[in-house]
């Protein structure tokens, strides 16, 4: 079983996040691996561990700092890492990103077949959740998304999908693109030995030329959308905080009534 896990370098949720020239500002200092990708790494490790054989390859796309996300995946137990980096990728929309990742998956598969790509359910910066679907379409693989449980066997993957109206069980033949939710598992903590090994691990950097992707097919110029304005929202004005000394419930009710909300 060979599994590729996509990991994304995103700004730390607790940091001051911002935009620069219409794209998310990413810096080495406050960046980390997208938290929800930890569930993807965990899912991949559990499958390989249960099978007693296999390999987990962590892949990221992004500027020089993005390698931090791959190192985090290695700390958790991924066996290998790949970093796709090319200035021409900057500003890609989800379809350009899917083109790049699909090409990287095919290149990883050249050395040995890839059975599964596992992703997180969303990146906590953009939160669009569109990449897994776009990637499945681009690869023309099975699409098993929003899995809260995942099992693999007999050339097939089966997931449980908790949607607001129904709980679905969906099966599909491998190879497949699977996205897992934060309900799927509890990610492990990195161990010291792996932290030391991850620090020294050699992570190959692939460019668009290495992947055989035409630079004009990706990046800001190929993007179907453009961020034309981004501004920080002002804090809420006229905030009121009261400490309950016996009548705060009444004050709260009066506030709601005055606002026409109760």
């Amino acid at each position: 079983m060979r599994i590729l896990v996509t990991v994304k370098h995103t700004p730390d949720l607790q940091s001051q996040r911002s935009f620069t020239d219409g794209t998310v500002t990413r810096t080495a200092d406050d960046g980390t691996m997208n938290e929800l990708d930890e569930n993807a790494v965990e899912a991949a490790l559990q499958i390989v561990e249960a099978a007693g054989e296999g390999e987990v390859v962590a892949l990221t796309v992004g500027g020089p700092d993005a390698v931090a996300a791959v190192r985090k995946a290695l700390q958790l137990g991924a066996h290998k890492g790949v970093h796709v980096s090319d200035e021409a990728i900057a500003g890609s929309d989800v379809f350009g990103t899917a083109t790049v990742i699909a090409a990287a998956v095919r290149k990883v598969a050249e050395e040995q077949q890839v059975d599964l790509v596992i992703t997180g359910m969303a990146a906590l910066d953009g939160l669009t959740s569109m990449l897994p679907t776009a990637l499945a379409a681009e690869l023309d693989w099975s699409q098993l998304t929003l899995a809260s449980a995942l099992t693999v066997g007999d050339g097939e993957a089966t997931i449980e999908r908790h949607l607001p109206d129904a709980h679905e069980t969906v099966s599909a033949p491998l190879p497949a693109v699977v996205s897992v939710t934060d309900e799927a598992n509890k990610p492990r903590y990195p161990n010291f030995k792996l932290i030391m090994a991850a620090r020294k691990a050699e992570i190959p950097v692939w460019t668009l030329a290495d992947l055989g992707v035409d630079a004009s097919a990706v990046g800001a110029s190929a993007s179907r959308t453009t961020v034309v304005d981004a501004s920080e929202r002002p804090p809420r004005e006229n905030r009121v905080t009261v400490t309950d000394t016996g009548d705060a419930g009444t004050q709260l009710a009066d506030f709601l009534i005055e606002k026409g909300l109760a």
Binding site: A248, G249, L252
Partner: peptide, 23 residues
């Protein structure tokens, strides 16, 4: 509290019944 228009420091078990009664 940082993002609330109206915040109450107190117990919901005291505050909610009183608010319900008032409304």
């Amino acid at each position: 509290f940082e993002i609330s228009d109206f915040g109450v420091v107190g117990s919901l078990f005291d505050v909610i019944p009183q608010a319900i009664e008032r409304i």
